[in-house]
Design a protein around this nucleic acid. Structure first.
Lengths: 160, 160
DNA sequence: CCATTTTTTGCATAATTTTGCACTTTTCCC
DNA sequence: GGGAAAAGTGCAAAATTATGCAAAAAATGG
């Protein structure tokens, strides 16, 4: 097997099993495994493997392997479908009350949650009412805009 | 008037809709949107948003938003944390939104209610979200402190 | 084999990103 | 209101990552 292929495999394994925070770190780990190379090569290897450098929760960075399902195809993040059952949306301060047909609230709120728009802090659903709490200093327009992305026509439901 | 929140929001939108290959690129896009800042701040913003830099198929790099479902929750035992299931708490005005694991909200809210801290006027629980309404002119710190009495480690869940 | 082409790599350096520090702004809390 | 604390930011420097180029290694094709 080619050295390079072995090394790429080793890199994948190391990244899977260790928390690698820099190419220098990886270089050291590889040396322990008998691979001698340079940071320049690692930069190219990581690029070839599409390994991303991501901030982690400890205030540092980790290299992460690409999702196996992020092919060349544009990833459909969220399926867009008509959200039926929404009757109205009305604002009060940084809160919005969305009225739905009876029983629809939980389903609709669940969809909103799954999209997790930055503008929306959270939702609470009853049976036919959803309370939407927006982030501070986010305007109503921004909330509507963020909902519009997956609730086409939401603009027509606004109560003024 | 939280510039930073607006900027973070803008960054998320830009990254969603554009192919951003460097912080300099992002800087330029932000300027077109009316945000003036420096690359240093962007580095910190991207870190806060956990935006990763990933090689793309065109031989370049793109910034990508973190998977919404890669919130790795520290696994804790029931003995250590009687109120496990709490994922985060975030404030907006005199409201706090506490996120829990699905189905935990009612149980957690019930515990909070039973302790009945003076600072907390009341709670409303959905399935995985609790709205906590605090008494007027009670600070966020006071709310956290009152919760700390029976939710050890709640301080670590605060989203800033 | 040998010459030729392609791939891989190291070196040096460029480009980019991160961070310590000091200063400014905002928030907190009485 | 106003002092204290916390958060946010720019600057400059440090740290890290990416890449042009030339050389070494490997593959290709007589």
């Amino acid at each position: 097997m080619k050295i390079k292929t072995q090394r790429l495999n080793a890199i994948v394994n190391l990244i899977e099993n260790h928390k690698v925070g820099s190419q220098e770190d990886l270089l050291i780990l590889l040396e322990k495994g008998g691979f001698k190379t340079t940071q320049a090569t690692l930069s190219r290897d990581l690029k070839a493997l599409k390994v991303a450098k991501q901030p982690d929760q400890d205030g540092g960075y980790v290299y992460v392997l690409p999702d196996s399902n992020d092919q060349d195809e544009p990833v459909v993040t969220h399926e867009e479908f008509p959200l039926s059952g929404i009757l109205s949306i009305e604002f009060s301060g940084n809160l919005a009350i969305m009225k739905t047909r009876p029983g629809f609230a939980n389903g609709v709120a669940s969809v909103i949650d799954s999209h997790g728009p930055f503008e929306i802090l959270g939702t609470i659903a009853g049976d036919d009412t959803i309370l939407i709490i927006s982030r501070e200093s986010v305007s109503r327009e921004e909330v509507i805009d963020s909902l519009s992305l997956f609730v086409p026509g939401i603009g027509d439901k606004i109560v003024l």
